[in-house]
Design a protein around this nucleic acid. Structure first.
Lengths: 242, 242
DNA sequence: CGTTAAGTTGAAGCGTCTCAAGATTGGTGG
DNA sequence: CCACCAATCTTGAGACGCTTCAACTTAACG
């Protein structure tokens, strides 16, 4: 497996981290964060397209995504890929209760990324020293499970247009939480196939659906750019009130 | 919301619990289990079809399923139901990191069930008293998230026949873990619609697929009974090696 | 047995997929 | 600055899988 490189010094300080409010280290004061920083092993960086880990690996670490976008996915035996989620800055990836067990999904960088790495041992130590971090970790797991259930429900039951609307709603909401103005055009580092694999359709069919949304003046999502036109209509479509 | 009834005394003892090995109280000795039992609020029972909780409820408790089957599901705004998972004895249902937040899914009894109830306060107390229970809880959450990711991947990407095979494989594996002989006919308290809603097809189409598997002498799954004929072929089908 | 709910089967229609040709974009070098 | 290229995206036409609706069959239960 390819290694990613250690990010050049100076590394970011947890006490001044712009995404801490969304991340595992959210609880506590700046001093708490600074103290914990000693147990953050290293910051890594990786280029677009770099596979961060693969299903089946036994990686004894987990990462907080500091910057960039990461695609979590599974590949079926028939070669089809299901995109499980899009990880954005602050998201915790690769964690398992048992680091001895192999990972059940893969992750690839959709942009250049910076990752804050935590070794198994340091995660254990952090949780023993600070029960609020244990609590936060449980909350993160619950949140991820909840998001997965939501995706399962719409991938299983909704027609393609509604699935796409739900995907875009979730994405814009999460981008908005990260301070991005979702009324302006947004660069989206996902191609047609990434999004198609997330909502369980082919990229060809996604193109047609995307054209529908454009003609209806709801969103224009083409060539890695998302131009919201009528976010309320998008939400109505996602939540099936029309 | 309907209440379920308190199970008549005597309640089961955690120290002698037949499903403890699969449940939250798994870690530790029989004495540990007996001590913890004081913080298990009550045992409840509910008949087939009873809704245990609904999406949107703010239930300040969680349950270990002691006996029976429970269907976890979400209902979309368009009325479609996605079955998220089938809970079997030992499974932990209704837990969230924040009991103040509303539930994101519903649960209904597929058989008469007995539930071991835990109040929010008692869960907190148990976890503070015993870090191994915190650890086990994290493990349960990770496991549930992992199962959800697996289902998302096959519901999103596999054709209906393979989805059904995967569903049956998962079910037989879990029944086998609970001591059921899966080479013999098994009563399955799920109707066509339950299974169809789990794998994201209509019950009509599931009937056709089920007929295929029967004709191929792989499994006979009709009228709430599962008769395995060739479990290896089923697994091959589920894992797409043919 | 007769009744009812659930499951099965058939036929037609729709949504999505496949394959293939054209259009758009961003990068590269003249 | 423009021509060209490769990769990605869009569009069209036909095929296939799944859904819908409706009639029939089977199982469960008094």
């Amino acid at each position: 497996m390819n290694r990613f490189t250690i990010r050049p010094e100076p590394h970011t300080q947890c006490s001044a981290c712009p995404v801490r409010g969304l991340a595992w280290f959210e609880p506590g004061s700046q001093e708490d964060a600074a103290r914990r920083e000693q147990l953050r092993s290293t910051q890594y960086q990786a280029p677009t397209g770099q596979i961060l880990f693969q299903e089946g690996d036994t990686l004894r670490r987990a990462y907080t995504l500091f910057s960039g976008w990461v695609i979590r996915y599974k590949v079926l035996k028939n070669g089809q890929r299901q995109v499980l989620s899009i990880a954005l800055p602050g998201d915790f990836i690769g964690y398992r209760a048992d680091f001895g067990a192999p990972l059940d999904y893969s992750a690839v960088a959709a942009t250049p990324v910076v990752l804050c790495s935590f070794s198994e041992y340091n995660i254990e130590t952090l949780m023993q020293d600070d029960p609020t971090l244990t609590r936060k970790l449980i909350q993160i797991q619950c949140q991820q499970a909840q998001e997965c259930r939501l995706r399962l429900s719409y991938v299983g039951q909704a027609p393609a247009l509604q699935r796409f609307a739900m995907f875009l709603c979730e994405l814009t909401t999460r981008l908005s939480q990260r301070g991005i103005d979702i009324t302006q055009p947004i660069d989206i580092p996902l191609n047609r196939e990434d999004i198609a694999d997330a909502i369980g359709v082919t990229s060809v069919h996604l193109s047609r659906i995307s054209a529908d949304l454009r003609k209806k003046q709801i969103v224009d999502c083409r060539y890695n750019r998302l131009i919201p036109k009528d976010l309320e209509a998008l939400q109505r479509l996602a939540h099936d009130n029309d």
